[in-house]
Design a protein around this nucleic acid. Structure first.
Lengths: 139, 139
DNA sequence: TACAATGTAACCTTATCAGTTACAACTCAA
DNA sequence: TTGAGTTGTAACTGATAAGGTTACATTGTA
């Protein structure tokens, strides 16, 4: 299952936008209902992905792109798939002396890559701005 | 990341088909390069999903459907998503006194459900028979 | 009846995640 | 310039899940 970091990250970005950056990690933690360090940890990933910027000692977070230019895929890539960007964990070390063991990996690669591509395609089509739009339309 | 159970399950089904069911868990384990109990554990899930049938004491596994009728989605559902069938873990317990916290969950539900649906759609379009076809076309 | 295979429970190790404490580094206002 | 307040991170603690392993009861068959 994809970790809750992903949905928390979208929550964080929405709050930054709505409060125009004048917000601290402790406030965000109060809205998410978790510890400020959890928030700062996720913000650190968003920062490394070039989505936000913040500075030690300074209250406030800057969005480096408008939310309409930040897709779910951008967020997903920022906080998930740490090393190899692969969704399906194909077992390695199959027995090369077995015909099936020798070829199973290459047989799985194409369809599973395609499935991941479709998932990412869909994630690319929603922006965080749409989330804020939905939230603002609620009472 | 989706666990390797999924790819191992496809490996198992391919072997059963190629050997026409005359095969034991120990042999499969040799091809996958793991412990027979790991294989039997996954076979148990495939059995509960109605894809295969085997009996204690009897060598051999029966496919309950032709591989051309077993999609990657069938296998995925058999061995992953144990309880709630949800791919994205949305954080619960957001602060209901915060406008964002109160509405983030409903804002995320629709796009994430759609993304999962697209992934599953793609998985539904590949069958395990295609994997066996690919393997048999190799040397 | 004895052998061989399956089905499962139980345990261990490892990895990841989320929560938490602690603290260094940094800003800015008084 | 000092002190309060904030961020950035390291480190530790469960909790949970996965894969590997041992052990053994159950079952069918030669």
């Amino acid at each position: 299952m994809i970790s809750s970091r992903f949905s928390v990250a979208i929550h964080i970005l929405s709050l930054i936008d709505i409060h125009e950056g004048k917000i601290k990690s402790e406030y965000i933690a109060g809205s998410v209902n978790t510890n400020p360090v959890v928030i700062r940890r996720i913000m650190s990933m968003l920062g490394k992905a070039g989505l936000i910027e913040s500075r030690a000692g300074v209250t406030g977070i800057k969005l480096l792109k408008p939310l309409s230019a930040i897709s779910f895929l951008d967020v997903y890539r920022a906080v998930e798939l740490p090393e190899n960007d692969v969704l399906f964990n194909i077992h390695r070390n199959s027995n090369p002396q077995c015909h099936v063991g020798r070829n199973i990996q290459s047989a799985l690669e194409q369809p599973l890559t395609e499935a991941q591509r479709q998932l990412e395609n869909t994630l690319a089509q929603t922006t965080v701005a749409q989330v804020v739009g939905h939230i603002q339309s609620q009472s």
